[in-house]
Design a protein around this nucleic acid. Structure first.
Lengths: 158, 158
DNA sequence: CTGCTTGCAAAGTGTTTGCAGGCCC
DNA sequence: GGGCCTGCAAACACTTTGCAAGCAG
C-alpha cells in the first residue's frame, strides 16, 4: 500500500519529515504521538475528523489517547503545520498544511441536505477575500469554516 | 422599554403575530413555549445562542425547558421563520427571519482572535453565490455559517 | 535530570432523544 | 378527546482539563 521502501519514514522529502524538522527547529518535542498524527494526516487525501485521526494513529502508535491527539493537533496547528475546518456545527476536520502553508489550499462546501463535503480551490473565494479586505479590513481565512448550502444533486432531487 | 402599549403582543403588524399566524396556517400549534421563543428573538437585535434564548424565554414563560426551546427552534426553522448560523465550532446563533424570509439577511464574519462577530449584508456574498451556482450548481446559504478570519483591529494589533 | 508530553478519567459544552403527562385545536 | 408538544432526565458527540507517571532532549 505505502510507497515507502521500508516501514520507516523517508529520511528526506517526505512531508512528515519536513514537519518533524520544523518541530525540532521550534524546540518542540518529537514524540510518537505527534509522529503518528502527522503520518496519519500525510497518509490520506481525505479530511479527517479528530476521531478518525485517533483510530488511524492508533494503528501506528498503539495506545495513543484521544486527548493526546487533540493536544497534538492543537500544537501542530499553532505551528502552522496543520489546519482545521469547522464543518457546520459538527466535528472539525483536519489536514496537513504542507509543503507550503499557502499551497494547494482549498475551501469546503457542505450540503445541508446530504452532508456531502465538496472541495473547491480557494481561488473561487479570491474576489470575496479581496472585497472583505478592501471594504472592512477583514482578513478572510477561506478554509477555516465550511460554506453551507445545497449541492447540485440535492437541488435537483427535491 | 417596549413599544407595545400593553403587556400583550400587538394584534397586527408585530413580527411575532405574523409568525404565529404562519404557524396556524401550517397547522402547527401555537404554544407558550413557541411564543416565548419568538418574542425573545423579536425583542433583541442581537444574535442569540440557544442558551440565551432559554434564559430570556424563561422570563416570559417560566419553566420552559431547554429541550423545548431546541425543538421550537427546529420547528420554526423548518417553517423558515427562524434561521441559525454556526459560529466557528461553537454554539449556533439564531435570528428571526421576518418580515420576509429573504429580506435584511446578513452574513456573519467572526474574528478568530477576539471572537467578535461582524454582520455584513449578504450582498457582499452575491458574486460568490453566483459563481458557485454557475460553476458547481451549488446553492450557497450565505448566512448559514460564519466566515472566519481576522478583524481589522486584530490585524493591526498583532 | 528537568519538565514538556502523555494516558487516564472526569468534567464541560452544545444538542438530541425516549417517555409519560399536558395542552392545543 | 386525539394527538402534537412539553418537561424531565438521560444520553450523545465533540472537546478540554487536572493529575501523576513517562519520555525527550
Amino acid at each position: 500500500m505505502g510507497s515507502e521502501p521500508s516501514g520507516r519514514v523517508a529520511a528526506s522529502g517526505g512531508r512528515v519529515a519536513v514537519a518533524l524538522d520544523l518541530l525540532r527547529e521550534r524546540n518542540e518535542r518529537v514524540t510518537r504521538a505527534r509522529q503518528a498524527v502527522l503520518e496519519t494526516l500525510d497518509g490520506t487525501a481525505e479530511h479527517l475528523t479528530a476521531d478518525e485521526i485517533v483510530s488511524q494513529a492508533e494503528s501506528i502508535a498503539p495506545g495513543v489517547h484521544r486527548a493526546t491527539v487533540y493536544r497534538a493537533l492543537a500544537t501542530l496547528g499553532e505551528l502552522g503545520l496543520v489546519t482545521h475546518t469547522h464543518i457546520g456545527g459538527a466535528a472539525a476536520v483536519y489536514h496537513l498544511a504542507l509543503p507550503a502553508p499557502a499551497t494547494a489550499r482549498h475551501a469546503h462546501l457542505q450540503c445541508t441536505r446530504c452532508q456531502a463535503v465538496i472541495d473547491v480551490p480557494v481561488d473561487i473565494l479570491a474576489p470575496l477575500t479581496a472585497t472583505l479586505d478592501r471594504d472592512l479590513g477583514f482578513q478572510l481565512e477561506p478554509d477555516h469554516a465550511a460554506l453551507l448550502g445545497l449541492c447540485a444533486d440535492c437541488r435537483s432531487a427535491r
